[in-house]
């Protein structure tokens, strides 16, 4: 039973990364009509920024500030990408956005691989979150519990920002009809840039959260992004809550698979995608592409 709970926890953690990443993909796709292939590379950058901040002799900035600084740094990097490259794709076929961001991902991952090789570098768990507690039925490492709860809070906060605030209302309106929203005096291009920054920042945040668990590697996001694509195909990109729930649910299913049939744990998400496509081709949240 212990092993089952442990795998469930691992599943919940992977699920929180799926949720944070697919959430960002959905927000970006809504505004920019681009599937951000560079999302995995930017997730990796988030982890690396935290690593640099900690290991730089002059800065040695720890985990807690990194949790805020890394998403901002990567978010700014993302906004520069949007201003200098992505914005020129407006009006072109969606596929060009995929190709461009794939190229960006190759560049970013290649540069990091050149300097850091392919092996992982450890990132220590902050002192406050070390150790674990005994819940009676299982032993819970505090850091892992923290990752799940914190991701959940961030996801809900993002959902609240987009669905319940005035800024979110502008955002949703601009997704529907950018020209009309511009006519009301809202600076839509700036909003697009900020949206890309937000989506990318969420990816970087997931990167920082995963650094103590999965180590910091240049290719840590390369395979993850493909799984997240499958998550997005399953859940659809129509709804924010849909992305969050699908992300967590698939993580849990993956965890269960690790316990009951470990051989299939790498493939279960893809197999589920195939099943969903066969039964309900539009994805679970149901909006046609």
């Amino acid at each position: 039973m212990q092993a089952l709970y442990a795998q469930l926890l691992v599943g919940l953690i992977n699920g929180s990364f799926y949720a944070l990443l697919s959430l960002g993909l959905a927000v970006i796709f809504g505004m920019l009509n681009i599937i951000n292939f560079a999302h995995g590379a930017l997730y990796m950058m988030g982890a690396f920024v935290a690593y640099f901040l900690l290991n730089n002799d002059y800065l040695s900035i720890g985990y807690w500030p990194a949790l805020i600084v890394a998403p901002i740094v990567v978010g700014i990097f993302g906004m520069i990408l949007e201003r200098t490259m992505l914005q020129w794709l407006t009006g072109l076929d969606h596929l060009y956005g995929l190709l461009l961001t794939f190229g960006i991902a190759l560049i970013v991952q290649g540069v990091f691989q050149n300097y850091f090789g392919s092996s992982g570098m450890p990132y220590a768990i902050p002192d406050q979150l070390k150790g674990g507690m005994n819940l009676g039925f299982m032993f819970l490492p505090i850091y892992r519990g923290w990752v799940v709860i914190f991701s959940l809070v961030v996801c809900i906060a993002t959902w609240f920002l987009i669905e319940k605030t005035r800024l979110g209302a502008y955002l949703r309106a601009a997704t529907e009809n950018p020209t009309l929203v511009r006519a009301f005096g809202v600076n839509v291009p700036r909003m697009i840039t900020l949206t890309y920054g937000l989506g990318v920042g969420l990816a970087a945040l997931a990167g920082v959260l995963s650094a103590p668990i999965n180590q910091v590697r240049p290719l840590m996001g390369a395979d993850l992004i493909i799984v997240v694509f499958a998550v997005v195909v399953i859940g659809g990109m129509g709804s924010i809550m849909g992305s969050i729930i699908t992300g967590f649910a698939l993580g849990v299913i993956e965890g269960l698979t690790k316990y009951f049939y470990p051989e299939a744990s790498n493939t279960v998400v893809f197999v589920l995608m195939v099943l969903v496509l066969l039964v309900k081709p539009t994805g679970l949240t149901g909006k046609a592409a």
């Binding site: 190709l99 461009l100 190759l106 290649g110 050149n114």
Partner: peptide
């Protein structure tokens, strides 16, 4: 790995 970087750059240049 610079080959990867160059390939990525070609992608970016071609698309833009």
């Amino acid at each position: 790995q610079w080959v990867t970087v160059i390939q990525g750059s070609i992608f970016v240049i071609c698309v833009l």
